[in-house]
Design a protein around this nucleic acid. Structure first.
Length: 285
DNA sequence: AACCACACCAACCGCGGCGCA
DNA sequence: CTGCGCCGCGGTTGGTGTGGT
């Protein structure tokens, strides 16, 4: 039901999104937020344009996107707003939590348009019979009915750090530095893959990583004293914070202690996210 | 079973608005 | 004021599903 995947002349992939791409985008945004749509796909390891990523996230991957049939109430709201405002799909979406403008637009064209057209015909024929002034709600009153803060993007647990970009001026972005280091750690072809080009999608084991790069990057002088003690790094992007723990352990020059549990006391999500950003700037921690 | 027409909807595209230098 | 880059919106496309003949 979607366009076949293709690659344009610039190497940008188009068409249907794979599960792997969804996982990458979801994991990346959950961790770093939507700091710059244009740059985001590069750091997330996606061969997509920013627009495509934004659309995929907004219309499909966002955790509070509601799927399934529209309720009668939702239909009424759409019809009412359409009568008042016209095709302001984004405004409709703000008044229908969990629904996206694209979904509402599609639903309008496939279900409601015909229905309202039928009603319009009835209305117009009735009006020809009796010319009474209509009692409509003004567009302004409808706008006032809209909820002030139902913006789905702002209601997300959004770790959007674009406000703190100045400290990173002239440096790699925090996202770039973090992801680049992760990529650099991966220095050898893993045992279960033929090509390292599949870095982002493959199953990973601890042997696949050369952590000296990561430790050097974080200023550790003697990398031999630090030994990763967990056994598997399966799908780091699908387990968003596992790698952050590792980075944190190296950042503070502390051995990563395996006390029989996968991970020690959990920092808050906000802490982990901030750590992932502040590796070059202590003032942010 | 094969064909066709229509419905559905994810994804693409172009444009306008906004912020910033 | 102007130009540029980015984002979001609304219109459109195109592939798959489904029901009818």
């Amino acid at each position: 039901m979607v366009r076949a995947p293709s690659i344009d002349k610039n190497g940008i992939k188009k068409g249907e999104w794979s599960k792997e791409e969804d996982d990458k985008l979801r994991a990346y945004i959950n961790r770093y937020g939507t700091w710059n749509w244009r740059q985001l796909p590069r750091f997330a390891g996606l061969a997509r344009c920013g627009k495509s990523c934004r659309l995929r996230w907004k219309n499909y991957l966002q955790p509070n996107v509601k799927r399934g049939n529209f309720t009668k109430d939702e239909e009424d709201i759409i019809i009412n707003l359409h009568n008042q405002l016209g095709k302001k799909w984004s405004i409709f979406a703000k008044n229908l939590p969990g629904r996206t403008d694209n979904e509402i637009k599609n639903y309008w064209h496939t279900h409601l348009k015909k229905r309202t057209q039928g009603q319009d015909q009835i209305m117009s024929s009735n009006q020809e019979i009796k010319e009474e002034p209509s009692c409509q709600t003004s567009p302004i009153s409808t706008v006032l009915m809209l909820k002030e803060d139902t913006n789905e993007e702002s209601s997300q647990p959004n770790y959007n750090h674009q406000q703190i970009s100045p400290p990173f001026e002239g440096l790699m972005s925090p996202n770039e530095s973090c992801c680049s280091v992760l990529s650099q750690c991966y220095s050898t072809t893993p045992s279960n893959q033929e090509s390292p080009a599949d870095f982002w999608s493959q199953q990973l084991t601890i042997e696949d990583y050369d952590f000296s790069e990561l430790m050097t990057w974080n200023g550790a002088e003697d990398t031999s004293t630090i030994t990763p003690t967990f056994e598997c790094l399966d799908d780091i992007w699908s387990h968003p914070f596992d790698m952050d723990y590792v980075i944190d352990a190296y950042k503070y020059q502390q051995p990563y202690v395996d006390s029989g549990h996968a991970y020690p006391s959990s920092p808050s999500t906000e802490e982990v996210c901030l750590w992932s950003y502040d590796l070059n700037d202590e003032s942010l921690s």
